[in-house]
Structure formats: structure tokens, C-alpha cells
Design a protein around this nucleic acid. Structure first.
Length: 470
RNA sequence: GGCGGCAUAGCCAAGCGGUAAGGCAGAGGACUGCAAAUCCUUUAUCCCCGGUUCAAUUCCGGGUGCCGCCUCCA
């Protein structure tokens, strides 16, 4: 069964076919490293992390590239405010990115190129565009000429005239057309600069991604991904530069995530409601964040609020408890091949089928998660049975959850193999004895005591089980 | 002014031609020595009005309401 995905450029779901069979090149626009990344960035990182993993799960050899933009207006401004160099700012924030991404379970990309390492390539690309008559110089600046590139506007679905007739396009002196954008910016006083054929300056915002994407993935890449607000102008411009220079399609598929709002408001600096992942992680379990993000389709707009997160957490805990209970029981069961497990095995098979079907349909994690919950109910029923159980079937169910959690990353705890202190074990043993003697008073006293120590006990048909409580 | 998206139970959220997945919360019940965990039952004129169709939440047209992009933003 083939993977289908929604391609922004055609506005349709298409069957995914990579350029080279079995291999996929993905370029995902990474953060500008002037600050910690925010929860909206996190959505994009998590969603494309899962998409990447799913493609790997389907057997593709994926090369995943995500850049760091380390030269840009905001970088210059922030570095100046803090009285540090651009390089220092970038190093600090890149380290923070990796730290936060790891906590969120976002795997590092195969390559994390930084814009400033690719200045010569950018200059080369700009020169190529000038040779082709798609770029022109004005004093120390170089602009891309949108009029000379007829396909311009294709990705964002905007005819050129409309793009510029909106009253908000700033007409800069030196541009031949209001829609033209800077490929190279001549140095201004106090700004960092690199030597170029047009004098000292720095690259425009869009050129870096063109160069880095093609450097690692070739002239035509399979998937280009990013946040929703990158469609225009960033990706439009990127595509124009790249295709203008090479004459080849730049990306076969464009994937864009949906917006994330906070308390139903757009997240913006002026509203002062930008939430960094750092802040959120102070009080929220990263697995809850992942689960929350993946509970909706990646293209749907979603709202983020503490209340919504709490609801998500309640659901996630149920699934995690189910898995923990199943593991606990499995450890107590002799490995049997009782036929009692056959129905459960079939349900596992069904759940896997459903999950794959959902993910093949434009990475519908919401629907896939529904399949997971459906099976969770079956596992709970199975685990709570009093009769002889088939450990093999239970193991298959757990293996299935492990299998999908390799992509989703919110079910199993990062570190498992938790064990109890001797003292606690002794207490549990004493309570078991008390229960056998029907000494409920002592049994309950011990249970209360353990509860205060953060261990809760649950009596099941297959013996007592314990769980750590926060 | 141009382009695009969304409207499904108290809340969140899939589905998108054959009268509605899943989760949270609520209410009953079962299980339990008591709990916990779990299970069962229960809650939807699918924004409105037309049209196409044997059949529409699902397609088409028109409303209404939210939202986004066209400017730095994931």
C-alpha cells in the first residue's frame, strides 16, 4: 500500500513516489537561532520527525536535512542587544535546540547545516542567476527578478500582480519590481559581512536553504517541509531561486504543517504570548506534548492551552498504564502457547493494519492513535481476565506498541526497568501475608504507607502490582 | 483588494456518497474485603439554505461565522 501525502503545490493528496526508488531526501526548514524555539516550532519538529520515522518504517532510506539559520536580521539584532557575537549567539542557541529537541524525542537530522558555512555556494548560485538574467545588482545589493521568472507564485497560488497589489509590500529603492527580493545585502555599518563579487555583504534570507538543500540532496529533492507561514515568501522564493538556476524542479512534494495558536490567539511577539518549549517543559511531561501534537492531523490548525494539555494527559496515561500493566503481567506469566491468545493476536494484526492505513493516508496520526486506543481496550480486557493466559499473545501486543512507539515516542517511558528498593519489597510481602490472613486493617495500613512513599498498589487476579506515582 | 483554510456531541478530534472512529469530562452499573486499575451502558437534527443523487455530514452553488497568508514569523 502506497503512502499518500498532501502536496502544497498541487493542493491535492498524491501518491508518494521518490525520485530514486527506496530513497527519500527530505529538507526541513529549521529554526533561526536567535532564541529558544517555541511551541509552534515544536509542532513542526515533532510532526516531521514522525513523518521521517514513518517513511523509514515503510522501508525507505531517508536522508533528513534540517538547517540552522545563523545569519539574519533577528540574529544581528539579538546579538547586538546582548553584546555578544553572532557566532556566540548561534552556538548557544544551537546547543539549546539539541537539548530541547532531545527532551521532546525529536531525533537529530542526518545533517544540520548552518547557513554561514555555505556562503561561497550562495555566491555561486547568485552568480548563476545573474548569468541567466534572473538577478540584477543595485549598488551593493543583488535582487531576484520575479518578472523574469514566469512560474513565480505557483507554490503559494498567488498571481504575481496580486502578490504585489496588496498594500503592504514595501517598495525598496533599487528594486525593479516590488516583488523582487534580496539575494545579497550590501553591508551596513556595524553588520557582519562576507566578501563577494558585489562587495562586502551578507546573504538574503532565502538563498541559504536553496544552497544547503541542493548541496545535500541534489538539484531535485523529494520532500521539502516546513511551517505554514513559510509557504510565502520563503518557500516560493527558494523554489524560484533554485529552479531558476538549475532549470529543474526543486522539490517534488511540499509539506506544510498547520498553525498552532495559544488560547485561541495567534502566537506573536506583540501579544506577548510566545511560549518557548523550555518554559513549557518546566511543568509538562514531554511525552504529553508529543501526544497532544499527534492527536490532531498535522495540517489542521490546533489550539494550545494548559487545559487542553491536561485532557491529553489523561488519555495518554490510560495508554501508558495499559502498557505498564501488560508488562507487569507478562513478567508473572509462564511462557505459554495457550490458544486463549488467538483472538488477541488477531486484534493486534488488525490494529497494525489500521495504523498503517491511517498513516499511509497523509500521515493521519489522529486516526492511527484511535486504533491504538481500540487495541488498548482489548489488552485491558485480556489482562484483567482471571483464567490462564497466553503470554505470547500479550508479548505480541506489547511488541506492536513498541513498534509504533518507535515513531510516536509517547507510550513507553524513556528509561524502563524500574525496580523496587528492598524495604519496599518487604512491605509488599508483609501486606500480601496480611491479606492472606484477611487482616485488612494491617494490609490497608501498609498500602497507605506505601502510597505516601509514592508507590501505589493494585490487587489483580494475577497478584499485586505496583506503580510509582508522581 | 487577492489567495486559502476551517465549522462534527459539554470539551478535544477522525471520517468525507450508504444515516457518525477515538480520547477527555459527566451519569449509571460491574468487578474488589475496601480500594486502585479495568470493563459495560449512556450523551450528535455532522453551522444555515438550496441543488445533484436511489442515497449527502461527505459532492456542487449560495449564505453565516471563525481563522490564516499576501510583511519578519514554524
Amino acid at each position: 500500500m502506497a503512502v499518500k501525502l498532501f502536496n502544497t503545490i498541487t493542493r491535492r493528496k498524491e501518491t508518494f513516489e521518490p525520485l530514486h526508488e527506496g530513497r527519500v531526501g527530505i529538507y526541513s526548514c529549521g529554526p533561526t537561532v536567535y532564541d529558544y524555539f517555541h511551541i509552534g516550532n515544536a509542532r513542526v519538529f515533532i510532526v516531521f520527525d514522525v513523518i521521517r520515522r514513518y517513511l523509514e518504517y515503510r522501508g525507505y532510506k531517508v536522508t533528513y536535512v534540517q538547517n540552522f539559520t545563523d545569519i539574519e536580521d533577528k540574529m544581528i539584532k539579538r546579538a547586538a542587544e546582548r553584546g555578544i557575537t553572532l557566532k556566540e549567539l548561534a552556538e548557544e542557541m544551537i546547543a539549546a535546540y539539541f537539548a530541547d529537541a532531545q527532551v521532546l524525542g525529536v531525533r537529530p537530522a542526518d545533517h544540520h547545516p548552518r547557513a554561514t558555512d555555505f556562503i561561497p555556494g550562495m555566491i555561486e548560485l547568485i552568480q548563476k542567476l545573474m548569468e541567466k538574467g534572473l538577478a540584477y545588482q543595485h549598488q551593493g545589493d543583488v535582487y531576484f527578478s520575479v518578472e523574469n521568472f514566469p512560474p513565480y507564485g505557483r507554490l503559494s497560488g498567488q498571481p504575481l500582480e496580486e502578490l504585489v497589489s496588496g498594500a503592504r509590500v514595501e517598495v525598496e529603492e533599487g528594486k525593479r519590481h516590488p516583488g523582487d527580493f534580496a539575494l545579497w545585502k550590501g553591508q551596513k555599518a556595524g553588520e557582519p559581512a562576507w566578501e563577494s563579487p558585489w562587495g562586502p555583504g551578507r546573504p538574503g534570507w532565502h538563498i541559504e536553504c536553496s544552497v544547503m538543500a541542493m548541496e545535500y540532496l541534489g538539484d531535485t529533492i523529494d520532500i521539502h517541509a516546513g511551517g505554514p507561514d513559510l509557504i510565502f515568501p520563503h518557500h516560493e522564493n527558494e523554489a524560484a531561486q533554485s529552479e531558476g538556476a538549475t532549470g529543474k524542479p526543486f522539490s517534488r512534494y511540499w509539506l506544510h504543517a498547520g498553525y498552532l495558536k495559544i488560547n485561541k490567539e495567534k502566537m506573536s511577539k506583540s501579544l506577548g504570548n510566545v511560549l518557548t518549549v523550555r518554559q513549557i517543559l518546566e511543568t509538562v511531561d514531554p511525552q504529553v506534548i508529543r501526544f497532544f501534537m499527534l492527536s490532531s492531523h498535522y495540517r489542521s490548525p490546533i489550539n494550545f492551552s494548559p487545559e487542553l494539555l491536561e485532557h491529553a494527559e489523561a488519555g495518554l496515561r490510560r495508554m501508558q498504564t495499559m502498557v505498564a500493566n501488560a508488562e507487569d503481567l507478562l513478567a508473572k506469566l509462564p511462557e505459554g502457547e495457550a490458544s486463549a491468545g488467538k483472538p488477541l493476536r488477531e486484534k493486534v494484526l488488525k490494529a497494525r493494519e489500521g495504523f498503517i492505513r491511517a498513516m499511509n493516508d497523509d500521515f493521519n496520526t489522529a486516526e492511527g492513535i484511535a486504533d491504538l486506543f481500540h487495541l488498548a481496550r482489548e489488552v485491558n480486557i485480556y489482562v484483567n481476565q482471571a483464567g490462564p493466559l497466553d503470554g505470547g499473545a500479550l508479548r505480541e501486543a506489547l511488541d506492536f506498541y513498541r513498534e509504533v512507539d518507535d515513531m510516536l515516542g509517547f507510550i513507553f517511558p524513556a528509561s524502563d526497568g524500574d525496580s523496587l528498593e528492598k524495604e519496599v519489597e518487604a512491605l509488599i510481602e508483609r501486606r500480601e501475608r496480611a491479606r492472606r490472613e484477611k487482616n485488612w486493617q494491617e494490609a490497608d495500613a501498609i498500602r497507605d504507607k506505601l502510597k505516601k512513599m509514592g508507590i501505589s498498589l493494585e490487587d489483580t487476579p494475577h497478584g499485586v502490582r505496583w506503580r510509582r506515582e508522581e
